[in-house]
C-alpha cells in the first residue's frame, strides 16, 4: 500500500510543467488532484518514475465566462464545481455531477481535468463534457490545440492526449434554454455508477430538441445513444427505450451483467426524461 519510489517536482507555471515532463520522460505523470493517481500508485497499479505536481500552477483553476461559453480550468476541484454560480447557471449538469463523485474529502481535492484525463468509463465528467459539446483545451510543447469532447475519449483510460500534452481547460457552450440532467444508479452514494446518463435537450412540449443522450458505466468510454436521441426529438419515449437495444452493448462487470445494465439504462433514461421535463 506504499508506492514505489518516484521523484517529485512542483511546477511553478505551465511552461515549467511541460519542461519538467520533457526532462523526466513520457512515463512521468502529472499530479492533479491525485485522488485516483495516488491510490493507484499505492496499490502499485500505476508506476511512474516521476510526478509533476501542477497544484501550484497559476491560472489552471477557476471558472470564467467568455461570450457564449464558460471556461473551466482543468484544476478546478469538484467541491468548487458544485458551488460555483457560473457552473450552476451555464453548465448545470456539471454542478449536478460534482456531488455524486465520491465523498467530501475526495471532492475537496479531485479535479475535473484529472477526471477527464484519467478517463474512467464509469466516471460522471467524461459523459458530461460529451453531452454538453465541450471543447477540451490542451497544451503541449508545440502549443495549444482544442479537441471536441466527442473525439477525446478513445477507450478504457485512453484519451486523445498525445505524449507530453496537458489538459488545461474545458470550454462549454452555455446551456441557455437547453436543460440538462445527470442520473445514475449506485449501490452506495459516491460509488462509481452501475449505469449513469447525462441528458441535455431543448424541451418543447413532448419533444426533446437536439437531444444528447450519453451513458457512462456501459462501455469502455462514454457511450452516445444516437438512436434514443433521435426518437426523443420526435417525442417518442417508447421508441427511444427500444432504440437503446441497438445504441448500447454493455459488457458485464462486477456491478451487473449486460441484461441488467440494459434494463437499468432504460430505467434511468426515463428518470432523466422526467427530470428534464420537471425543470
Amino acid at each position: 500500500m506504499k508506492p514505489a519510489q518516484f521523484a517529485y517536482a512542483r511546477a511553478k507555471d505551465l511552461p515549467h510543467a511541460l519542461a519538467l515532463w520533457a526532462e523526466a520522460g513520457e512515463d512521468a505523470q502529472i499530479l492533479a488532484g491525485g485522488q485516483s493517481l495516488i491510490a493507484g500508485l499505492g496499490l502499485r497499479l500505476a508506476d511512474t518514475p516521476a510526478l509533476i505536481d501542477i497544484n501550484h500552477v497559476p491560472d489552471l483553476a477557476g471558472v470564467t465566462e467568455s461570450g457564449d461559453r464558460i471556461r473551466i480550468g482543468a484544476m478546478t476541484r469538484h467541491a468548487e464545481l458544485a458551488r460555483n454560480p457560473l457552473v450552476a447557471e451555464h453548465a448545470p449538469a456539471i454542478a449536478e455531477a460534482a456531488p455524486l463523485i465520491a465523498h467530501p474529502a475526495i471532492q475537496a481535492r479531485g479535479t475535473i481535468g484529472g477526471s477527464l484525463a484519467y478517463a474512467d468509463p464509469a466516471a460522471e465528467f467524461p459523459a458530461c463534457v460529451v453531452a454538453l459539446d465541450a471543447e477540451l483545451v490542451v497544451q503541449g510543447q508545440g502549443g495549444e490545440r482544442r479537441i471536441p469532447a466527442a473525439d477525446f475519449f478513445l477507450g478504457l483510460y485512453e484519451t486523445a492526449l498525445e505524449p507530453f500534452e496537458l489538459l488545461t481547460a474545458i470550454e462549454i457552450p452555455k446551456a441557455g434554454r437547453r436543460r440538462q440532467t445527470v442520473q445514475e444508479l449506485v449501490r452506495r452514494h459516491g460509488d462509481y455508477a452501475i449505469v449513469g446518463i447525462v441528458l441535455a435537450a431543448d424541451v418543447q412540449g413532448d419533444t426533446l430538441g437536439a437531444a444528447k443522450v450519453v451513458y457512462f458505466g456501459v462501455g469502455d468510454a462514454p457511450v452516445v445513444a444516437e438512436g434514443a436521441a433521435r426518437a426523443l426529438e420526435q417525442g417518442d419515449v417508447s421508441a427511444a427505450l427500444k432504440a437503446l437495444n441497438d445504441d448500447l452493448d454493455p459488457p458485464g462487470d462486477l456491478t451487473g451483467g449486460p441484461e441488467t445494465k440494459r434494463h437499468l439504462a432504460r430505467v434511468i433514461l426515463q428518470r432523466a426524461i422526467n427530470a428534464l421535463r420537471a425543470q
Partner: peptide, 15 residues
C-alpha cells in the same frame, strides 16, 4: 481548511 484523505496526498504536496 478542507477535509482531505491523508493517504491520497503526499507530504511533499503539503509543503
Amino acid at each position: 481548511g478542507d477535509v482531505v484523505r491523508g493517504c491520497l496526498m503526499l507530504a511533499a504536496q503539503a509543503d
